[in-house]
Structures are given as structure tokens and as C-alpha cells.
């Protein structure tokens, strides 16, 4: 009797999990399949595989829809900003977590986690305008690097504290200077922490919309989320074009997520501890 109860409980458990996985996954599958259909087929054959694969949708999205330009901008901006964040956050964390442990500065850096970015939007817009760098990728490199520092320092300082201090003391005695200790000891030993903050910063940059919407108006510098927004405004009834544009935006993040799943989850949920 108990066994039957256990079995039916197990069946129910897997049924719930499989069904909810479908609910989580299917919307993306639908978009990707629809990106390979023409507009009529999206309507007439909503759930099936495409009858003839319309790769031309991607060509149209890439050229007419400007997703080619947007894609390159997103790649450049995400990689460069992430690189900058990783290096300067590691330097800050080494400074306030190791060379001169400083709790006040640590708190100062991490309060940024609690500030909603919308509260910074108007002053940042004015600042970028006054700096004369509106409509440049540079504006986003700066803003994205700066807004990702707080979380990165929060994650990295606790990571650096787990590295035995005997290591850099020994290096110091051997005559290494602080820069050498940083590049040859701390940075390499922090790799798992750096991977976590890097993946998190990369996703934040790839997905960011409001700053880009306010700082970039020139089509030549627009990122993918801006591309989606303008496509939705202009060609909303061209659903296959929309779906192809969405796929160009979503599929790279998904591949990224599949490759770095553990780091992505660790990074994105690290803020939860902070609350």
C-alpha cells in the first residue's frame, strides 16, 4: 500500500516538474521555431516545425532590422565593460580586503547593490551629456563598468579572504611588489570568484536597456535590447522578423548560460544573501 502511495507520489512529482519545465522552456522554443517560418505559417502552423526553413528572416533581421549592427555593439560593449569590471573590482577588492582591510570602504562600495539604477538615470544622462560623450560606446563602457562594481566587490572580497595570507606575505618577503603579488598570486588564485563576477557582469551588460535607451540614439551604436524596442515600434506586424531578432538576442545568452551555468547561478543569486 505504502509502495503504491510512494510510486504515485513520484509520478505526480515528475509530472509537475516536467510540465513546469515545459512552461519555462516552450515560449523560447516557439519563438525560435517561428523565426524560421513566414508570417502566414506562424498563424496557420503555430505549434509545428517549419515546413520550409525561412533562413531569410535572419538575413532580413540582420540587415534591414539592423540586428547585425546591434549584435556587434552588444558584443563589444558587454566584453569590454566586463573586462574593465573584473580588473578594477579585483584591484579594489585586493586593496580593501587584503592590503589594508577596510570595513568602512567595503560597506561604502556595497551599498550600491541596494540602489535601484533608475534613481541614477537622470543625473547620469546629464553627466554624460556634459562630458560630451552622448551616442558613444564609451558612455556605456563607463556606466556599465561603474554600476557593476558594487556586486563584484561584494563577491570578490569574501573570495579573496579565503586565500591564505601566508602566500602573499611569503611573496612580499621574496621581494615581489604589490603589483606582482596582485598579478601573480591574488588574481590567478581568485579565478573562480572572477568567473562568477565576470559572468554576472556580462549578462547584466547584455540585457541592460534603460541606460542604453537614454544614452544612445544613433542607430550605429544601438545594442540588442534597443534593437528589439525599435523593431517592435516599426515592424511589429512582421512577426517572423521580430522572432528572428528575438532569437538573435536570446540564443547567445542561452548558450552562455549552458556553458557557464554554475557561475551564472552563483553570480545572479549572490545578491540574495545581501538582500
Amino acid at each position: 500500500m505504502d509502495k503504491i502511495k510512494d510510486q504515485s507520489a513520484a509520478v505526480l512529482k515528475y509530472a509537475v516538474l516536467i510540465l513546469s519545465s515545459l512552461v519555462a522552456l516552450y515560449p523560447f522554443i516557439w519563438v525560435i521555431l517561428s523565426s524560421l517560418k513566414d508570417n502566414f505559417e506562424i498563424y496557420s502552423n503555430s505549434f509545428g516545425l517549419p515546413q520550409a526553413y525561412q533562413w531569410v528572416n535572419y538575413y532580413k533581421a540582420w540587415t534591414v532590422g539592423k540586428f547585425g549592427v546591434n549584435f556587434i555593439n552588444s558584443v563589444l560593449i558587454s566584453f569590454i565593460s566586463t573586462g574593465v569590471v573584473v580588473i578594477i573590482s579585483a584591484m579594489v577588492s585586493y586593496s580593501i580586503g587584503r592590503i589594508k582591510p577596510n570595513n568602512a570602504l567595503y560597506t561604502f562600495f556595497t551599498i550600491g547593490i541596494m540602489i535601484p539604477l533608475h534613481a541614477l538615470l537622470i543625473p547620469t544622462f546629464i553627466l554624460i551629456k556634459n562630458m560630451g560623450i552622448m551616442n558613444t560606446r564609451l558612455s556605456l563602457y563607463l556606466v556599465y563598468s561603474a554600476t557593476n562594481i558594487s556586486m563584484s566587490v561584494f563577491i570578490l572580497v569574501s573570495f579573496i579572504k579565503t586565500i591564505p595570507s601566508a602566500l602573499d606575505e611569503a611573496a612580499l618577503i621574496e621581494g615581489m611588489n604589490f603589483w606582482q603579488i596582485f598579478t601573480k598570486v591574488i588574481f590567478p588564485l581568485s579565478k573562480p570568484g572572477l568567473a562568477t563576477i565576470g559572468t554576472l557582469a556580462f549578462l547584466n551588460c547584455w540585457n541592460e536597456y534603460v541606460y542604453a535607451a537614454v544614452l544612445i540614439a544613433k542607430p550605429a551604436f544601438k545594442t540588442l535590447p534597443l534593437g528589439i524596442a525599435s523593431l517592435k515600434g516599426q515592424y511589429f506586424t512582421d512577426y517572423s522578423l521580430m522572432c528572428a531578432g528575438l532569437a538573435i538576442t536570446i540564443v547567445p545568452v542561452m548558450i552562455f548560460y549552458i556553458l557557464f551555468q554554475e557561475q551564472v547561478i552563483k553570480g545572479m543569486t549572490a545578491g540574495a544573501v545581501k538582500g
Binding site: P27, F28, L224, P225, M242, L246
Partner: peptide, 19 residues
């Protein structure tokens, strides 16, 4: 799988749901 939607931009999710 259940975490997957979290990594996608809200802008993309919103546009998807518009469709």
C-alpha cells in the same frame, strides 16, 4: 531549465509576450 528565463533580458521577454 526552471532558471533559464531568469537570464533573458526583460525587454526580450516582454517583446516575446507581446507576440
Amino acid at each position: 531549465i526552471l532558471f533559464l528565463p531568469v537570464v533573458v533580458s526583460p525587454i526580450a521577454i516582454g517583446a516575446m509576450f507581446s507576440i
